[in-house]
Amino acid sequence: MSTEILRYAAFTDRPEGGNPAGVVLDAAALSAADMQRIAAEIDFAETAFVTGRDGDAYLVRYFSPIAEVPFCGHATVATAIALAERGHDGRIRFGTPVGEIEIETTADATGPRASFTSVDTDLAELPAASLERLLELLGLERSALSWTLPPKLAFAGNWHPVLVIDDPSAFDGFTFDPAAVRAYMDEQGWPATITVLHPLAVTGEEPMRFEARNLFPVGRITEDPATGSAAASVGGYLRALGVVVPPARVVIEQGRHVGRPGELTVDIPERGGITVGGGAVAMAAPEARDVPRA
């Protein structure tokens, strides 16, 4: 049986920008092993698989090159736009391992856009020992951290450690050993990214803007170019700390450090899930391949 594999760049209007995602719209006949093998072969941060329907909701699973992940924002945006381009536009729902996600697809002068609303957010303390280990892994001193935006664990479908660095040279200059960071993330049970933020415009300007680096060592990838789930977590983080007065919009720039710049818009309501939006564009023609069944 032939399987059609799509490749989209999300949170951008250029194929060479944003975050690449694999998309398989008809994965009903694929086993988990099949999906894992395809994701490893595509070798993007994540690939989304539409495994069927539950009423009017599309059932979606997400795989990195090394494991299934509970949720992936950029692959959600890519999948929604792929469906919209095939006539399934407007408001759609995805049934995911973290719960039901609502997506709105639209089009403007720059092309198609999709916005997803995350599950409800949560915030937790980042244990002192975990923070110290993270700083050690990134070669950062505690003094590099923001005085006003403290390190936390933020949740909007996945738990993300969030560190904020005020000094742009420290933000641009930190480096890390991908294998050591991957091992620590696995040890801590963090399935997604480590989010490091730098404020670009926090007070006196609207919307608030940040630049993000999201560490995600999987295969050849070290940093994720654009991370929707992390952006949703950042929205919940800012709301819980009282940094924004909802309803508010935040813009996150990401991908400059890996040569794939993109932009994510984050809309923060008074309560409930965070809405993250952006564009997506096909990177290449669909590929049909015969997938040996596991």
Results as ranks from 00 to 15, higher is better:
Pro261Thr: 14
Pro246Gly: 04
His257Gln: 14
Ile221Met: 15
Gly242Ile: 09
His257Phe: 07
Thr222Cys: 04
Ala226Val: 11
Ile252Leu: 07
Arg213Trp: 01
Leu264Val: 14
Gly255Phe: 02
Ser229Ala: 12
Pro217Trp: 06
Tyr237Lys: 14
Thr227Glu: 06
Leu241His: 13
Val234Lys: 07
Gly262Val: 13
Leu215Glu: 14
Glu263Tyr: 00
Ala240Val: 12
Glu253Gln: 12
Val250Cys: 02
Ala240Met: 04
Glu263Pro: 02
Gly262Cys: 06
Val243Met: 00
Asn214Ser: 12
Ala248Tyr: 13
Val245Ser: 08
Tyr237Ile: 15
Val258Glu: 15
Gly259Phe: 02
Arg213Val: 04
Tyr237Asp: 08
Arg260Leu: 04
Val218Glu: 15
Glu253Phe: 03
Ala230Phe: 07
Ala248Trp: 13
Arg260Gly: 08
Pro246Asp: 03
Pro261Ala: 11
Gly242Trp: 10
Val243Gly: 00
Val244Glu: 04
Ala248Asn: 11
Pro225Thr: 12
Ala232Trp: 11
Ser229Trp: 13
Glu223Asn: 10
Arg220Ile: 02
Gly236Leu: 05
Arg239Tyr: 06
Arg260Thr: 09
Tyr237Met: 08
Val251Leu: 01
Ala240Asp: 05
Thr227Asp: 03
Ala232Tyr: 10
Asn214Tyr: 06
Asp224Asn: 07
Gly235Lys: 12
Leu264Asp: 15
Leu238Met: 11
Leu264Gln: 15
Leu241Gly: 06
Arg256Glu: 13
Arg239Phe: 04
Ala231Gly: 07
His257Ser: 09
Leu215Pro: 11
Arg260Cys: 04
Asp224Cys: 05
Phe216Pro: 11
Asn214Met: 09
Pro225Arg: 10
Ile221Lys: 15
Gly259Tyr: 11
Val245Pro: 01
Val245Arg: 15
Ala231His: 12
Asp224Tyr: 06
Arg220Ala: 01
Val234Phe: 05
Gln254Trp: 07
Pro225Glu: 13
His257Glu: 15
Arg239Ala: 01
Glu253His: 14
Arg239Ile: 10
Arg256Met: 07
Glu223Cys: 03
Ser229Lys: 10
